[in-house]
């Protein structure tokens, strides 16, 4: 149970696949148009239930409860070995230092 007052993300289906704009690529046209928005949950609910939230600007929005206290997923990703030689090679070209450039 997610408690009223929790900061949550809801999912709203805005358009069904059959209602999508004309002229869009077929892969996009085969999917519904969705949006996600965050807000304070207005009544206790379970994930997957239809709920109402109060957003950051004070609007009320309805949708399906997607998750509670959504974390920001951004970070620095995995190590990318292809990047690690770029700086050393350029410095060697510019200042010398025995790199095979």
């Amino acid at each position: 149970m997610i408690q009223q007052g929790t900061w949550v993300t809801i999912r709203c289906q805005i358009l069904d696949a059959s209602e999508r704009a004309a002229g869009i690529p077929t892969d996009t046209a085969a999917t519904p148009f969705m949006l996600w928005v965050k807000g304070t949950l207005l009544a206790d609910a379970e994930i997957g239930q239809e709920v109402r939230v109060r957003t950051a600007t004070g609007r009320e929005e309805a949708g399906v409860l997607a998750e509670a206290e959504t974390a920001y997923p951004v970070g620095y990703g995995a190590f990318v070995p292809e990047l690690s030689g770029i700086g050393p090679q350029a410095r060697a070209l510019l200042f010398g230092g025995g790199e095979d450039a």
Binding site: I24, F33, L35
Partner: peptide
């Protein structure tokens, strides 16, 4: 700000 995150498309 309030951010609305949509799927791809001109809608």
């Amino acid at each position: 700000a309030e951010v609305l995150q949509c799927t791809v498309g001109p809608e």
